[in-house]
Design a protein around this nucleic acid. Sequence first.
DNA 1: GATTAACCGAGACGGTACGTCACGTCTTTAA
DNA 2: TTAAAGACGTGACGTACCGTCTCGGTTAATC
Lengths: 198, 198, 198, 198
Amino acid sequence: MSAADTPQADPPPRGRPRSKELDASILSATLELAAEVGINGMSMDDLAQRAGVSKASIYRRWPSKELLVIDALRSAMGPLDAVDTGDVGGDLRSILGDLVARFSSKERMNDVLPHLIEVSTHDPALRVELEAYTQLRRVPIRASLERGVARGEVSPDADLDTLIDALLGPIIYRRLLTGGPIDTAFIERLMALVVPGR
Amino acid sequence: MSAADTPQADPPPRGRPRSKELDASILSATLELAAEVGINGMSMDDLAQRAGVSKASIYRRWPSKELLVIDALRSAMGPLDAVDTGDVGGDLRSILGDLVARFSSKERMNDVLPHLIEVSTHDPALRVELEAYTQLRRVPIRASLERGVARGEVSPDADLDTLIDALLGPIIYRRLLTGGPIDTAFIERLMALVVPGR
Amino acid sequence: MSAADTPQADPPPRGRPRSKELDASILSATLELAAEVGINGMSMDDLAQRAGVSKASIYRRWPSKELLVIDALRSAMGPLDAVDTGDVGGDLRSILGDLVARFSSKERMNDVLPHLIEVSTHDPALRVELEAYTQLRRVPIRASLERGVARGEVSPDADLDTLIDALLGPIIYRRLLTGGPIDTAFIERLMALVVPGR
Amino acid sequence: MSAADTPQADPPPRGRPRSKELDASILSATLELAAEVGINGMSMDDLAQRAGVSKASIYRRWPSKELLVIDALRSAMGPLDAVDTGDVGGDLRSILGDLVARFSSKERMNDVLPHLIEVSTHDPALRVELEAYTQLRRVPIRASLERGVARGEVSPDADLDTLIDALLGPIIYRRLLTGGPIDTAFIERLMALVVPGR
DNA sequence: GATTAACCGAGACGGTACGTCACGTCTTTAA
DNA sequence: TTAAAGACGTGACGTACCGTCTCGGTTAATC
């Protein structure tokens, strides 16, 4: 099913086409700057200069700073590598371990999530994007758990959504609120509680 | 023998003392305005006007909007009413139920937490306050769980901290990220997973 | 050979050019407001509003209120109408009479000169502008005196600069310090003293 | 005629009398500070601290910054030493020479006069004080000229007021507006014009 | 000697203006 | 039509100063 068979095909583009190089340049400058000075300290003027681009060219592509940041995030994430170690315990240790590694890195990028959450409070469009992004991160865990159900490692009447919440929620909670340590020991205790015996 | 036999007697206050009425007036105006227009939409000028106070009088007391908001929050919270229904299940249903009610209310106050999290990213002082506030909210749950251990309802070798994280984390996670429903059904599923049989 | 064969061709202007309408709007609003409430009572916010312009647009053009006022003054002055009645006495009566009329008008604009003098005390840039403006006002008198020398009405070894000082100085002095009357009678007495017989 | 026979004699002072030391301390601190940072750069808070005095004690004595400054000026001036060299030319050279010396000194105090002029524009009380101060400075010149009239050095039908204006005005004018040199050469040229032969 | 009224230092207070900054839009010339 | 450059409106920021007010405490003259 091709993209072109929508009833109202876009008219053939007129005028100078948008440069794809600018797209890339803006996105990477965003990642750089946000990492350096934090998302709040990054002004759109500075960003434009860093990217060697005019502000208008940015706003022609993204309607707001935050939607740009979320796209930059997505572009940086790359395709989620499907994890399949053969048992649920291994899968989760791998996936959650990645998360631990990411959070323990000292990058300033750490303030991106808080910022997006805050802005999405008054920006429904961003809220939609943020929730989509959040769901994306749940996919591999869900896949692993479903394989676990098939293999009999996970009870067939478990509520997988709640299970995922119970795995990711405490990590996020520590990250955003308590400031408690997020390490492999914590992951083990958490799994002992939520998926005992795995 | 002087009246102030504390080891470190602070010097007697000099000059005109700060008006306690202004303290109160500012704090309550903060709660009102933040609830009405959100913490981001609340400008310090508007706040000063609403409180019937000059901006300087606010900045004399709090170095930033956020520290002020945290104080306002604390002032509004009052002493946490100790919950003790006699069993852990009842306690948790009561405490988490309160949380559910708070989150489902439609007040604009809902953006306070996201905002504080975001700002505390670049403000260590605020971060300290926020974590202190967070710990405060954990106290009643911990007390209940400890009574549960004493009564034999909770395993004595359970890691209470992780347990609390596993109860609060998923709720916060839904609130801030997935946008999933936070209701009694969710609480029940969560408890079934984390404190089975309660 | 390029179109701009001035030795120092400035680079072609880039970006959106400054609106000349805003220039005009700001200058005329400055004259209006300064006349109404005095230069000290004129806040930059009020001025911006009156001109229908943002404060930033003002500060983009002028670094301070006073340089703006000086420019406004210059813009309002227009080309000095050359006075030539045929004899020095007539010229001076015309020129100084204009000054008298200006000072006796009850406009608030009267505080402009005092204000500019005061501020130029700590602002060398403004000082330069003020002296340039002052010199401008001397030009017609000097021209008239030079014609008088040519016609033999004024002694050829008179020091014209001192002569001008002796004509303008007492008027300014009364205006700024003694508060004494500045009228045609005073002008006559002054001329009888400084340019006797004219 | 004593000060006490006004119909409503001041009641005998009750309570603690004002400290005369504070008067002196405030006045001298005013002269110091105004000389150092200029009258505009001198804040009343700084002044109070420099004088080792509370702001209230200043405002108890003077109703505004400017009236204080004018008093400080008067206190610094001391009694005008009567000049009498025996002829008008000598007197004027002495008196105007003093003025030249004062203006050529590099003290920051130089901005006092401009500031007072400017503020007196919107402050009638200050205006009165300023004009009184101005008249004070004219007294010795007038006295000298009157002696000159008696001695036949000055024409008996000269208008002394205009004469004084013509002597002081150009000096003030250069000082405040043109920035031209104020030196003995200028004084000589001026006198040659206004009091020829002296 | 007690009272009293004005003094004093310290610093809080309302009001007002300041000059700066960032966002997202608009307007120009050039490609 | 896109691009670079930068002007523009809007609106908030945190600071500074003025002149007033409010504390606790001090000093003389009066009772």
